[in-house]
Every structure is written in structure tokens, then in C-alpha cells.
Design a protein around this nucleic acid. Structure first.
Lengths: 260, 260
DNA sequence: CGGATCGGTTGACGGCAGTCAATGACGTTA
DNA sequence: TAACGTCATTGACTGCCGTCAACCGATCCG
């Protein structure tokens, strides 16, 4: 199912939505290959030393780690525009899987290294990317450490309204399409499908969420959900509130404006 | 209690153990200030945009985040030689506190930026540092997600034998000095002092740990502890085992050789 | 159509570990 | 020496949520 097409840079980038939107960090590079992955396929395995950089063009990837007995921990979800935080020449600390059908740009390590030595703007973008990922992993640790399972499940739903297809209904409520399965939802919340199911049930009973169709929900009061998940600072203390979920938005520093 | 001394680079670095050991990433830079912090003092607060880089010369720092109701999560412990993963011009996602008396080198953002544009080796060291921190945060997520409290407490003890003062006794057992309080131990293990106490008690009952003095322990069978904490791959599957704790060792890539 | 498979829901149960509280050990100060 | 603060220990209790199991609906397939 894997399809690799090597194309001259112009051809690939000229039609790419990311470039048009200014979300591509590598538009200046040549020798870019586009690779298609079906949902569930693995892009790279933990421990590998990939000699290239990966940029997600379309779809969702997950960064995860496997244990000896088959269990797994999902550490982050990547969306279109994100760069996999891997550095050519360093062993990877995680595997990367397609959480949906995806298109990934692969940039050769040689091309990257050459451009990195030459191009100041590119350097800053790379550092920014690393900083954004550091930030997101810190957020993940915070969420897992200080929030209950229920709160994390809600936090992921809130996050989905910020990085997944969403529209606003006439009555002001949000309609969001979760592009991940219940299993992924549970993985990202570091809990089980049963707990996710129970939490969604509970929210429905309280009128905070209405299930419209499989993976489609209506959310009348997003601020109420934020409060339930303790995503906003409760007191008026100067203390900064907990951070959002670990999905990396299209732009590396999107988090800065996320809660106003 | 804060004492800041600005010294010409030569003077500072000439006497620095880090430089002699080759652990200093900034020996080439000038305009370095040395700052002393007493245990408990804060180096930088979450949300600040420090216009400098911090390198830990001596002691231990902790990276942590505070919640609205006074609770806190410790994300990593830094040891001598580590660089605080902050980039000049970006808001910090965590506070940094002295976990013991420390000496920190401060490098001005301007000096750093100039050198960063000029010095290829420095660039690689900075990227390496970011990569090491990414790796450690991923490890932290893994530990918190897949290990029990008991296992995390043991994992931290094991880790201490790898980055804190330790010597080997005639009978082959290790004697380690924990340079952090019970509270820090609990913070780093994402649990409570009560649980740490109970775990240590349990280990003593099983003869796996003997308390010699406050903060000093004898460990007859370190491999046994590793097994208890599930730090080594159980099966002979190709699956890589869980990673060590999130203390960053003196060298950024020390983890590579950590378990052979 | 029957059966198999998969994703999701619901209920019952149990254990890990967090919380609360009392007590002890130790060092500091008056 | 007594009073006090800090740090650590131990016990009792409780509740969240992970695990197991049964069940349901949708889809696919021979």
C-alpha cells in the first residue's frame, strides 16, 4: 500500500496546500519525495536512524512507544504541517504510525544539512519546531500528572475543536468531527475505550455533548467543557493555567494564542 | 542570596570542571556570567522570555510547572553540564528551581545568536541538546503512563545510581547518596512522600535496599531493582525496553550507552 | 441468510495509590 | 530543657479507574 513518488521539488510544492498557506518549513528545499501511507501503516520504527526529515502534508500521524508485552503509549498526534521531531543521525525514541490516510514529504538528510548550514531562516524554523515539540511534551506530562482520566478525555475533545474539522451551528454551538477512533481517543488520553465511553455518556447525560453521528458531536457549551477539564486557570492568581493537549497544530507556535 | 558575578570568559571557564571534562557546550563563548542559587531559589519562571541561555555548572535544577491550586509537576531534573532547554525569544513552558545549591552559567542571547550563526559545531551541540531533552521527556511520558507508582519510585533510585555520587563496596554492592529530599524523590516519581516511604520500607524488608544514613543507601543487587522497575526488556523480543529516568546526564547523549 | 469480525457500550469487581491523620525522629532556637 | 518546625513513617480509609466479561449494532463475506 506504500506508494513513493520522487518528484522535482517544484512539482510537489507547487500544488501543496501547506506552501500556499505558508505552513511549509521546507518549501525552499529540493529533492523532496512524497509518500502515501494507509491508516495504521508505520512510517519509522523506534530505534531507527532515519536519514531524512518528515513533514506531514495531509492526515494525522501518532508518535508512540511500545512495551515488551505489547502495550503502547501514544505521546503525541501530528497534524498537517507538522515536522516529525527527528534529527538525521540520531536514533529515534519513538515509532511513527499513520492515524489516518496520510501524505508525508520526505527530505533527504544531505539536502537538509546543506540547507541548514546556509539558510538562517530554516535554522530558526527547525529550532522553533524543536521548541514547539518540547512544549507539547511538557504539556502531555502535565496533563497525565495532574488531570484525572475523565478530565483528560474531555481535554482531548476540547483540543479536537481546535485542530479538527469544526463548524459553528446557528445556535452558537460547535459541531466537531473527530477524525480518530475511540481507541485513538483513549490512547491520546492515556486511558481505556471503556472510560472514554463512560465519560462521553456522562457528558451526554449532563447535556454538554450530543452525539450526532459516529465521530460527530455537537457541543453547546465549549467553555463549560474547558472548565470541567481544568484547562483554564480557576483562580485569578497570576499562575498560568494548565496547557492544552499535545496535538501539534499546523504552526509550531500556535499554542501561544490558543487560549487568548 | 543571589550572587551574580560577571567575569571575562577566560577567567570563568579556565577553572571550570565542565570545560576540563569536555562537557561544556559554550567554552568558546565570551560574556559569560556565573550565578549562584541557594536551594529552593527560582532561576526563571514559567511564561518568561529569558534573553539568555543557562548552563548548569554545579548542583541540580528541576524543571516544573505549577497549577492554580498550588500543586506542581516536576518534569525533569538537570545535572551539571546540562543546558536548560530554553530558546532566547520563546516563552518558557516551565519554571526552573534549584534543587540544591547550584552555580549556573548565563550566556547572553546576543552572544549566543552570533555564535550560532557562525559556529557549525555549536549548532550541532544545540540541536543535540534539544534532541536529548525531547528524548527525556518522551521517557518521562512512558514511565508515567506504563509504570506503577512503586515501579517509578524504584526507577528513580536506579537512576540515582547512574548520575549521583556512588561508590562500590568490597562486597560488590553499591552505596549511593541521594542528593534530593524525599519530597523531590516523590515529585520526580510523580507520587507522594508516603508512597516513597512505603516502597523504601518494602525494599528494605526484601533485603534489596539498606538505609545507611539519611539519604544514603546500600544496594546489594542493582540488577534486581532494575527488574522490579521493569527498566529492562523482559522478553527477548526485538522490542526495545523502557527508557531510563528523565534526569539529563552530563552529556546530552549519555542515554545511548546507559544500559549497555 | 448465518456467521464472523470489529467498534462501541454497559455492568460488576477489585486493587493501586492518594488522602487524611497521628506519631516519631531530628535539628534549631529561646 | 522545653518548645517548635521540618521531614519522615505508619495506619486506616476511600475512590478512581483499569480489567474482565457480556452484549449490541454495523459491516462484510462466503
Amino acid at each position: 500500500m506504500t506508494d513513493i513518488a520522487t518528484l522535482p521539488s517544484k512539482r510537489v510544492c507547487g500544488t501543496c496546500e501547506l506552501r500556499k498557506g505558508g505552513d511549509c518549513r521546507f518549501a525552499a528545499l529540493s529533492g523532496v519525495r512524497v509518500r502515501h501511507l494507509a491508516k495504521g501503516e508505520t512510517l519509522v520504527h523506534e530505534g531507527e536512524m532515519p536519514e531524512r526529515l518528515f513533514l506531514l502534508r495531509r492526515g494525522y500521524l501518532r508518535m508512540l512507544r511500545f512495551g515488551c508485552d505489547g502495550d503502547r503509549v501514544v505521546m503525541a498526534l501530528l497534524a498537517a504541517g507538522d515536522v516529525v521531531p527527528a534529527f538525521p543521525g540520531r536514533a529515534l525514541g519513538f515509532s511513527v504510525e499513520a492515524a489516518s490516510d496520510t501524505e508525508v514529504c520526505e527530505i533527504s538528510g544531505a539536502a537538509f544539512r546543506a540547507a541548514f548550514g546556509r539558510d538562517t531562516a530554516l535554522r530558526h524554523r527547525i529550532l522553533d519546531n524543536a521548541a514547539a515539540h518540547l512544549r507539547r511534551l511538557q504539556d502531555a506530562i502535565w496533563l497525565r500528572g495532574r488531570l484525572t482520566s475523565r478530565e483528560r478525555v474531555i481535554a482531548f475533545l476540547v483540543q479536537a475543536t481546535e485542530c479538527m474539522p469544526v463548524d459553528r451551528l446557528p445556535d452558537g454551538s460547535l459541531r466537531v468531527t473527530m477524525r480518530v477512533s475511540r481507541g485513538d481517543w483513549a490512547d491520546m488520553s492515556d486511558t481505556t475505550v471503556e472510560t472514554v465511553s463512560r465519560v462521553v455518556r456522562g457528558l451526554a447525560d449532563e447535556g454538554l455533548v450530543e452525539t450526532l453521528a459516529r465521530h460527530r458531536y455537537r457541543i453547546p457549551d465549549i467553555a463549560g467543557l474547558r472548565r470541567l477539564a481544568r484547562l483554564d486557570p480557576a483562580g485569578a492568581e497570576g499562575a498560568p493555567g494548565p496547557a492544552p493537549w499535545q496535538v501539534i497544530g499546523p504552526r509550531g507556535d500556535r499554542s501561544v494564542v490558543r487560549h487568548q
